[in-house]
Design a protein around this nucleic acid. Structure first.
Lengths: 356, 356
DNA sequence: GAATCGCATGTAAGCGCTTACACTTTCTAC
DNA sequence: GTAGAAAGTGTAAGCGCTTACATGCGATTC
């Protein structure tokens, strides 16, 4: 063994080989190889226009030859920004946030930003942790879903000077920049139509409202519509459940076995609605003849479900894109963007019918 | 103005205020405030056991009071690692990769790593770019989908010393560590059963095979089964299309209008299958009485579709979790993990019936 | 032809943290 | 009691990059 080790030292080449395997080329290596200063190499990378064409070509060739790529950490540290934007969403497991997020990312990428995602599993404590984690990782800005969270989180973000945009909700009174829609109004509009169709006994299968203002708003929207139309509050059966198709199915069964079963079942989101739909089928309950089912979100699932789901359309893509644009502008100008309200509106498909 | 500026200098306090608003507290600030060295503060954060309890308490209090949180870039630079793992997937827009990715992230989080996601939109060029981008951002390791990509990408990754794991595929001959399943074998198993049920005229609505080895393998799997069962190659109508429900619908229409329409239509993934299913319904074609439809992936959509989709179950969660575990081990030990083969198997639901 | 300008490039000072090493103090074992 | 180990802490050298500022030099102006 010692002999071998000794031998290795004899061959000068080996040192080079070892250097290659143990460490990547640095800016300095490139500068040395190209016969220029580190500043020039840095400029070639960041502000190519500032460098004479001949020099630039030489440096670019050297970069390619050495396979150099800038060290992220060093760059972050020297430039004091990461060009990274964080997004914290409740879950990645289904399409509710995926489409919006994809649009968000596309827009960010187009402007040279990278997206960092974290999911909370609908847990507030988890969210607080993820906010800290993303900020610690140098997220220059953050996207959050909904307004409702501990004030401490907002204080932290403000103290760290992290531009933060709220999406999936609209509440101008909050004073926080947001790109979203009015959950209550959208659900209210839908509920009005449902009531106008003659439905009197209603149910809402809702996501948990405790830390989810979107769910709460949707609930309030139905209540508002009922009040408008003179329906007493007790005509709404409110069932709160956690997220998932199965949960929707269970809740639907529960709703239908009530002493006064509803003729229209609202669901806080399409995933729950699809679960309800499946349960109806399994129980031989015909939709929409026996009961109407109404979703919220208009994710792909809604169109593919059978019967195609009547739901509230949410402009996911638009929301993601505009949120990214707002954040990019904020990062550039240093001034918070205006709050943007998008429209979410009922989409009539086949799971809602008049009650005769 | 000069007067004002002069005044500011008079008040010592102002300097402090300005420092507060313009920059976050640093390790050094904490050290100074706590009356210890920067090394001690660093230890409190990274190796608390090494610090005397009294000192630690004091430092922790100071950290809390100042609202200090370590600067990511500086940390990365000094420690030469980011604790970040990148994942590059074709798309985030639907559930195909979402569940696996969620499991991947959960496992990473549990071990103190953060996930960086990038999507390629099924474009090879885009993928090459994203690989570079994630590496440049300091991803310590990478998750990729499928084996097929330019050798240059593998060379780049090797040169940069980035542990990389392949998922959603299994090809021990590649010599690359992977956690996945044998797409060809899974599809072959399914196809055998379909043929055994009496189907002779088949179709495959496939994702584009050019840069997607999973799609290609699935195609080959059907061919293998046909050969086993003595069906001539021309009994398979092969339709290649891009990704999406709509695309599946269009391709299905095309398949059924062939001169020799298939009695069983395989789909390269559930999204295409659900599109086919919808198109069948819209065209008054009854599934599975008139035609059988078979998916692949077993995403949530498959269970919710009507009729529930017969498909090939892919162990998404397990795959994500194990991929993360493999990568974490690799990062720790420095030795590549063994390739893991998971089992993907047919799930019989209601869209496949015997051909009489 | 001297003064001026502006472009291309170089010099070098950090950015905020980790960590090897050194040092001091306290314990342990005989 | 003392040598040696162990534990706690400090010192200071970078990590690889960006960028303010300095420098050099050819082009322009009068």
């Amino acid at each position: 063994m010692t002999e071998v080790a000794g031998r290795i030292e004899i061959y000068g080449q080996c040192e080079i080989v070892m250097a290659n395997t143990t460490s990547l080329p640095t800016l300095q290596d490139v500068a040395a190889a190209a016969g220029v200063s580190t500043a020039t190499v840095s400029r070639v990378i960041n502000f190519p226009a500032q460098v004479a064409p001949a020099t630039r070509a030489k440096v670019e060739a050297t970069i390619a030859q050495l396979g150099y790529s800038p060290h992220f950490g060093a760059r972050v540290m020297a430039a004091r920004r990461t060009n990274t934007v964080g997004a914290i969403i409740p879950t990645m497991e289904n399409a509710v946030f995926a489409r919006g997020l994809q649009a968000f990312q596309d827009e960010l990428s187009a402007h040279g930003y990278t997206m960092l995602v974290a999911s909370t599993g609908y847990s507030a404590a988890n969210e607080a942790e993820q906010v800290k984690a993303l900020v610690a990782r140098g997220a220059d800005a953050l996207l959050l879903i909904g307004h409702k969270r501990d004030q401490a989180i907002y204080d932290f973000l403000a103290a760290q000077g992290i531009p933060t945009i709220i999406t999936w909700a609209f509440d101008p009174s909050s004073g926080r920049p947001s790109v979203g829609f009015d959950n209550a109004a959208a659900m209210r509009d839908m509920a009005r139509q449902v009531i106008d169709m003659g439905h009197r006994q209603l149910a809402l299968i809702s996501a948990e409202t405790a830390s989810n203002d979107r769910a709460m708003e949707r609930y309030l929207g139905i209540q508002a519509a009922m009040q408008d139309k003179g329906l007493p509050e007790e005509n709404l059966l409110f069932i709160e459940t956690s997220y998932g198709i199965e949960e929707g199915a269970i809740a639907f069964k529960q709703a239908m076995s009530a002493s006064n079963p509803p003729s229209a079942v609202f669901c806080g989101n399409d995933v729950l609605a699809v679960g309800a739909l499946r349960q109806a089928r399994d129980s031989g309950i015909h939709v929409p003849d026996d009961v109407s089912i109404i979703g919220f979100d208009d994710i792909e699932l809604a169109q593919v479900a059978y019967p195609p789901l009547t739901t509230v359309h949410v402009p996911h893509r638009e929301m993601g894109r505009l949120a990214a644009a707002a954040l990019i502008g904020w990062l550039k100008d240093g001034t918070p963007p205006n709050t943007v309200e998008l429209l979410a509106y009922p989409v009539m498909r086949s799971t809602l019918a008049p009650k005769d």
